[in-house]
Amino acid sequence: MALEIIESCVNCWACAPLCPNKAIYEAKPHFLIDADKCTECLGDFADAQCVAICPIEGAILNELGEELNPPGSLTGIPPERWAAVQAEIRAR
């Protein structure tokens, strides 16, 4: 079992120092998780540390490819509101 960082990562460095397994490493274009080292923090912390500090919704996935911080969960912006405002900006 292992988590995965995907391209929406903004390279903010917050997760890397927290990883108990040193599984997270700097890479281009974004940080990555070494699947062989990642334990999802089982036995170390109640919550996966990278997931608990990551500020970007959708940037970390579980083994099933599910977003662990889904849209709206971190910013508090309802996804439909986000979509409506983006459409409005594009129409300007």
Binding site: V10, N11, C12, W13, A14, P17, I53, P55, I56, L74, T75, G76
Partner: peptide, 28 residues
């Protein structure tokens, strides 16, 4: 670049040379 809180006036995604306001940078 890392932060330990989220503020409602900040967007952690942004990185823009043409904007001038706190929290915005071009190059870490």
């Amino acid at each position: 670049p890392a932060c330990n809180i989220q503020c409602h006036y900040c967007n952690r995604k942004y990185d823009c040379a043409n904007e001038s306001r706190p929290g915005v940078v071009s190059e870490v």
